[in-house]
Design a binder for these strands. Structure first.
Lengths: 101, 101
DNA sequence: TAAAGTAAGTTACATAAAGTAACTTATGTT
DNA sequence: AACATAAGTTACTTTATGTAACTTACTTTA
């Protein structure tokens, strides 16, 4: 393992987006907010990891968490502007996958 | 963990690109072919994983491996059309990182 | 001619991340 | 009282990643 000669911003981006499930979670939120269970049901991810990833994304400011004090409690997640700015990237991956996979 | 209601092509794309180092390796090859050691030196990745990732990328047809029987042997890696088709995606991530990170 | 160097890996082992399933909490409904 | 529900969390197993030493095949240097 050598020192990185790599742009630190790109490295940081890939540390986020290159983590398993992250990009697919963002993809799920691109068309609007979703509840925890909705995301969980749309992806083959466990609650444990989904919770962990959403916390990371919230901490990095890509995702916003809103709690509705109903019974049972409802929690919605949505992309911030920073998260939404990845729309073209995610769309690009989707197009690539349709053309090449 | 639920069943995926997700587009299988996108899932497959993320299985590749969402694996640690993969996208950064592709990024290293976008401007032309590179040798094993060059990639290894440009990224904080170990030879073990770099070898593993390059094999996956070769198997999936994104990367091409060329051996030059010199002494010591020289091996060059370059993107195929399929790999090169990710140029905009990688560029998009780079732009996003510059604007938001 | 034995020792050292070089590129491209591989092996063996330690640590960290992800998968699985059961459990929790705070109400509301039957 | 027992059961249901959303959103997690916990404990434990399995898989992936990190680290560093080793390998191979030939060449140059001492």
């Amino acid at each position: 393992m050598k020192e990185a000669l790599l742009c630190p911003r790109l490295a940081k981006a890939m540390e986020l987006l290159g983590k398993r499930w992250t990009t697919l979670i963002i993809y799920q939120l691109i068309d609007g907010s979703k509840r925890f269970n909705e995301i969980e049901s749309s992806l083959p991810i466990s609650g444990r990891l989904l919770s962990e990833r959403l916390k990371e994304l919230e901490k990095e400011g890509l995702v916003e968490r809103t709690v509705f004090s109903e019974v049972p409690v409802r929690v919605e997640y949505n992309l911030t502007d920073k998260g939404l700015a990845l729309k073209d990237v995610v769309g690009g991956i989707e197009s690539w996958s349709k053309e090449w996979l």
